[in-house]
Design a protein around this nucleic acid. Structure first.
Lengths: 347, 347
DNA sequence: CTGAAAGCGCTTACAG
DNA sequence: CTGAAAGCGCTTACAG
């Protein structure tokens, strides 16, 4: 790369001062239309681009956002949850729309939590995305808040939590899908996925489920077995569940990935889905429509979610006060819940 | 965010000059161990972080890489190809390992091709990822090369192409999967996907297929029908194919997403897979293991690919000459090709 | 081993 | 409408 042109080179060629070049390039109304055109023409010709480092340094903001994706600590090289990947897609697009660049980073180990993009002035704000142990996580959020970092996160919407969240109505999702199962005659429920303050979004789904059950007059609370969002974790949990030999005709899973593992376990032990046991998931990932039978699940609108996440953050950066956002949970009925081509009667 | 500390603040507190602070923070061996420790302690206490804009401006490099993802021009809001998404995951991780930040951007419209990350000094190099019309694309690559931008791309490895590519051995992939089908008695082949210079990687797969067919003594070339990497494009192409009423017992698809659409079309017209017609895909996306029947496909090692892409680019940035890289294609045999639990006899 | 100084390439008050 | 100048916060040759 031979020496790149600077605004001084352009100034020289255009016969104006460097300040005028800078103004012309930023379309300042202060500068005469004619000189503006001339300067811009020369810039184009030289393929001049303003140096973002210099510009950001001077302006003290970078018009870029950092996205931090983190995964369950147990995760090795394995695949990232497709749900977050699709979120990433919509966030990228939304950033482009707002004129921001996007820095993406994975948080692989809980120890070196590098959220210093704003401290280093590399980004103006941060989007936090992923599941993980919320209890660990909370301290870090509190710290970010203390440092007055601009951030939004995807997750459970709870005013007690530090920072600002955008999330899906997990309670509603758990409620609706359980209600759907109840209406189709299911009686004996289990929930697979964490259900405590370590994973608030799963916990909300569980609470929604419990509420539906109670409302339907269920005597006892559902069985609950922990699992993280991985296929094999779902498989293990289901195996453990079956070994208990409790009456069972419906399994509500905290995520599609868990549900896929559960379905495998059920197949392997000779249970029929949905005849013997209905299985439902959460997230509506692509693979969910190809399982056998196709998985009934809850759709979270990732496109809207991505947009809200970046819009909220951008406005926050611009100094406008922002609020948390709750997206509705949408049931998507397929066959794993017991009936073919069923209508969503609970809507 | 109250006034951030600068290296001058630290210098003041430590009773040394600002240059010494800078050196100490960068672990320069020039500075005395004791002062180094003192400076670093103060920096930690103040939660000081060096300003990346200033640092990059001064050093004339940013230690960040930009990833440009582009999609078929026809694509609307619809989902990104999961294959690229998983690639993105491994690229992100590889960047972190190399100590580079990653800027991600989608190229949504072919007109405003913004690959100026290096020109603006926001990144030191670019990774290009995605399918698209190669004929359009080539001009842009040539331009990048002229501007001496550092870039690598994922795609067909062809010395005629401008720039440096890392890619999977598409010819080999097409060859192996076709050979597999031939060995299991398939006789009448069709290929679904573009097969010309507009999509070189698909073309290579097609050529590998043709080669296998020829080698097996097939008289006539296979039927070929265009499709882009979308489910509905595959569906349409298959519908068109069936309407021709040619003898047919095997469909080789240029991607899994196409194959999924093809399978739908086949189901809808009452064909049995694989009894009547075998279907195979390419990419080995997650969903491919859940289709009915599970899809036989070609696996591209995205983890390795991501690593090669970033390592090659990083070394290129550092001025070392680099070469193109070809990854092997790995058959993954499932049921859509005709036999259950088949061994890969062609390896 | 340390400091004073120059300079990376911009943007923007200030003066005209 | 335009220019000269200051300054954003670093890194690094230069001098000691």
């Amino acid at each position: 790369m031979k020496d790149k042109a600077t605004s001084f080179d352009i100034a020289h060629l255009a016969g104006v001062s460097q300040s005028t070049v800078s103004r012309a390039l930023r379309n300042s109304p202060l500068v005469n239309q004619e000189t503006r055109d001339k300067v811009q023409a020369i810039a184009r010709e030289l393929n001049y681009k303003v140096d973002k480092n210099a510009s950001s340094l001077r302006q003290q903001h970078s018009r870029t956002i950092a996205l931090l994706l983190f995964e369950d600590p147990t995760s090795d090289d394995s695949m990232i949850n497709p749900f977050f990947l699709s979120m990433l897609g919509s966030i990228t697009k939304a950033c482009a729309q707002e004129g921001y660049d996007l820095l993406v980073s994975f948080q692989q180990f809980s120890d070196d939590w590098h959220a210093d993009y704003e401290d280093t002035n590399k980004a103006d704000g941060i989007i936090l995305l992923g599941y993980g142990d919320y209890v660990d996580y909370q301290d870090k959020l509190t710290k970010l808040e203390q440092q007055q970092t601009h951030f939004v996160r995807w997750g459970a919407v709870d005013n007690e939590h530090p920072g600002l969240s955008i999330g899906c109505d997990n309670f509603q999702g758990g409620y609706k899908i359980t209600q759907h199962l109840i209406r189709h005659g299911r009686k004996h429920f289990a929930f697979i996925g964490g259900a405590d303050s370590h994973c608030p979004e799963f916990f909300e789904r569980f609470k929604g489920m419990s509420h539906a059950l109670q409302q339907a007059g269920a005597g006892k609370p559902p069985i609950q077995i922990d699992a993280i969002t991985k296929e094999d974790s779902g498989y293990q949990a289901a195996t453990e569940l079956l070994s208990r030999n409790a009456p069972l005709d419906a399994i509500v899973c905290a995520s599609d990935l868990i549900a896929i593992g559960v379905m495998h376990a059920l197949h392997d032990s000779g249970k029929r889905i949905p005849e013997d046991i209905a299985v439902v998931g959460y997230d509506n990932i692509l693979a969910a429509s190809f399982t056998n039978p196709p998985l009934t699940t809850v759709h979270q609108n990732t496109k809207l979610a991505g947009e809200m996440l970046v819009k909220t953050l951008v406005r926050m950066i611009q100094g406008e006060p922002q609020q948390a956002g709750l997206l509705p949970a949408e049931l998507v009925i397929r066959q794993s819940c017991g009936r073919k081509h069923d209508q969503d009667v609970s809507a």
